[in-house]
Design a binder for these strands. Structure first.
Lengths: 221, 221
DNA sequence: GATAGTTTCATACAACTGTTTGAATTGCAA
DNA sequence: TTGCAATTCAAACAGTTGTATGAAACTATC
């Protein structure tokens, strides 16, 4: 077992480099140089480059998913098995947005890595993403419970659009800032979350008689 | 000038291969084999691999942009310089969705190539995408004219969300089909367009007194 | 039909990639 | 200390990549 120092030095260096420069032009030699370890160490500790990338991604990925499910479960328990749709959506997109947006200087390496992973989809990561469906199904279930009168198709479309707005905003945050000449403040994460949740909620409840007219959910939770 | 046959054979072969297998694992040697031309032909006719990719992308890209602007202009002229927001949004997302969705067997190579370009963002393509901002500004302008009482920030967010839903749906169409077990019909393109436009419209008009209560815009245009 | 310009071709190049090897070193238990 | 396994290391390997070269084959013009 030993110190494990080399192993974690590689992980840290790889995450940092991938976050900064993307998967495309970071080689194993760059990583080992940054980590101050020998080239062969990567294959010794991880087996292959792809397995290193996969380990980085799954680690961050299950952390996000756990956070999502924690919020969802708390909300459903509090509501006796049925949570308001806004809160479900917030549990879905909140952790990702909070992880990936916010002031750049205080954005964690982990967050920047996940942004990269979302922009440049590299094979080992794509393989893992495909297994995320089961996770999403749990949210679809919660949403169905929250909106029992809504058709399943509409639920899935709402889920799709919610993820769309969250991921696209992360992925294209730079362009949105430039396009809006800074008027859209991507650093105000809670505002972004509120906007996404609000629009997704409208998408899911439009054309229905609402139990109670809701505010924009800007200050929910 | 000569026949230009080699040049277009390379373009066609490259587009086909990139569309099918992605940028990641298609080499120049694959392309020239598919095109039945010599390896050196690519550098002779295009200068470099990146310039070949760029030419493919800009060609398809300006075609889409032209189509978008044509629809936008037609709508604004018909409305005396101000088009309804639904029509503007339809001009924004319609061409892309129509180009990239629909029954797979009748999906053009060009469309499949653009989907790839949207999934795997490779450097030469990323550079071009960054110049797309001017194009989007024209839509932001039209949207401002359509919704003069709306704040600029809201306009940009609405634009962002509209693009988000369209692009994400294209990019993750496979996953949405799987997640919904086929219940979401991605082949019914006009339904997808209507859904995106409808949600984006709600995002842009919510909280305002609407001139007239609108239907879901499913049959607009 | 010679000439000049364009295009094709086989081949080589140079660089870089992830991975493997086998010896050296380290750390720890007996 | 001795012995053994785990780890590190320098070096090489094998493969692939995009690109360059210079001769050959065309093509059209005069």
């Amino acid at each position: 077992m030993a110190s494990d120092h080399t192993r974690s030095a590689i992980l840290a260096a790889a995450e940092r480099l991938y976050a900064d420069r993307g998967f495309g032009d970071v080689t194993l030699r760059d990583i080992v140089a940054e980590a101050n370890v020998n080239l062969a160490a990567v294959n010794y500790h991880f087996g292959s480059k792809d397995e290193l990338i996969a380990e980085l991604f799954v680690t961050r990925s299950i952390a996000t998913n756990r956070e999502r499910l924690r919020e969802l479960k708390a909300a459903e328990e509090q509501g006796g098995g049925r949570a308001p749709i806004e809160v479900i959506l917030r549990a879905l997109v909140g952790p990702t947005l909070r992880g990936c947006l916010g002031p750049a200087n205080q954005r964690s390496t982990a967050a920047r890595f996940m942004i990269r992973a979302s922009i440049e989809s590299v094979p080992p990561i794509r393989r893992i993403k495909n297994r995320e469906i089961d996770h999403l199904r749990k949210f679809a279930g919660a949403m169905r419970r929250a909106l029992p009168e809504r058709s399943e198709v509409d639920i899935y479309w709402g889920l799709n659009f919610a993820l769309a707005m969250a991921h696209h905003t992360i992925r294209e945050s730079e362009r949105l800032t430039k396009l809006s000449e800074g008027k859209c403040d991507l650093d105000d994460v809670e505002d972004v979350v509120a906007r996404v949740v609000s629009v997704a909620t409208m998408a899911l409840t439009a054309g229905k008689v609402e139990a109670k007219p809701r505010a924009l959910a800007r200050d929910a939770r």
